[in-house]
């Protein structure tokens, strides 16, 4: 009797395992073939020198590609630009997004849904379309930015808004903020709405209202949401591609490259596949580190 029981259990357990495996395997197959195997391929390929046309002509170079990267000034320019974009995005997108979320949460009474909808809208437009729209705004001949500057008597940059790398990197930031600030606002707004009304009532009794209450009471309470927002922005800043691809193609003379566009240039324009792989591995390490941070912070939440 006892034995029989165990057998039934075993049977249903293995049945469960069969169903579970059937449900789990497709996801694993897809991710393995198209994400993990290529990731390993990137690491392996980074130790070789080869080009697209001579795919079978791999030459072992050891750490040669990595040494090349450390001596390649444009790699450092690209990495530096990524970091500028990270910091500026955190200030512009998370910072302004927090202010907007706070205003929509408790600062205003009317039009919350309308404002939220408008500000979030650019998020659903493709980055290529966003870049092309802003291209006409920055255009030195027909752009409204020049027209506005001239109409109030200010001078405009002589090489145009996208011709001088010191200016164009900021034009890229303004465009990125245009697209992504609404996303941060919605994310942070969801966190704010989780803060109970009692907290504010208690704060008011203690004499903390308005901006003061927000700074000392609300912000610490949504700390985890802010960390996630900063991480998502940082990850996004390392993935930046379209704005630069459309605005400057990384130029003039590689001054506006970022890792993504520089990998693309090395791989598909210069056909330095091995070197492109080494650059990809550096991006991979940064991405996995940020992913690990995100996992840690979401576990705490």
């Amino acid at each position: 009797m006892n034995k029989n029981n165990t057998q039934t259990n075993n049977f249903s357990l293995s049945n469960d395992k069969v169903s579970a495996t059937i449900l789990l395997v497709p996801a694993l197959i897809f991710c393995t073939i198209f994400i993990f195997i290529p990731a390993i391929g990137t690491i392996v390929g980074s130790f070789y020198s080869y080009s697209l046309t001579s795919m079978n002509n791999w030459k072992w170079v050891g750490f040669g590609n990595y040494v090349k990267a450390t001596q390649d000034e444009y790699f450092w320019v690209a990495l530096k630009n990524n970091f500028i974009i990270v910091f500026a995005s955190i200030v512009l997108q998370v910072g302004v997004g927090t202010i907007l979320a706070a205003i929509l949460d408790r600062g205003i009474k009317y039009g919350r849904v309308i404002f939220r909808t408008i500000i979030f809208t650019p998020m659903v437009i493709s980055s290529v379309a966003v870049s092309l729209i802003w291209l006409i705004i920055y255009d030195p001949n027909v752009g409204i930015l020049n027209a506005i500057f001239k109409s109030i008597g200010l001078s405009t940059p002589s090489k145009g808004w996208l011709g001088d790398p010191n200016i164009s990197i900021w034009m890229i930031m303004i465009t990125a903020a245009w697209q992504n600030t609404g996303f941060m606002m919605v994310l942070i707004l969801a966190g704010l709405q989780g803060v109970s009304k009692e907290v504010y009532d208690a704060a008011e009794i203690d004499g903390a209202t308005g901006v003061k209450a927000f700074w000392y009471i609300t912000l610490p309470m949504i700390r985890n949401v802010l960390i996630v927002a900063i991480l998502i922005t940082t990850i996004g800043a390392f993935k930046v591609f379209e704005f630069i691809f459309v605005f400057t193609q990384g130029g003039p003379s590689n001054a506006t490259q970022v890792l993504g566009t520089y990998i693309y240039l090395q791989a598909f324009n210069l056909l330095h596949m091995g070197y492109a792989n080494a650059l990809s591995v550096i991006l991979l390490i940064i991405a996995l580190f940020l992913g690990w941070l995100q996992l840690k912070s979401s576990r705490k939440a």
Binding site: F36, G41, F241, I263, Y264, L284, A287, G291, W292
Partner: peptide
């Protein structure tokens, strides 16, 4: 309650972190 669940979940999170640009060349070759 699979023993490998924790490992699979970690793999999924890692997959979330990896951007297409980081695996561009092998993916294209494949």
């Amino acid at each position: 309650d699979f023993k490998i669940n924790k490992f699979v979940y970690l793999l999924i999170v890692a997959g979330f972190a990896i951007p297409p640009a980081a695996v561009l060349v092998p993916l294209y070759t494949m």
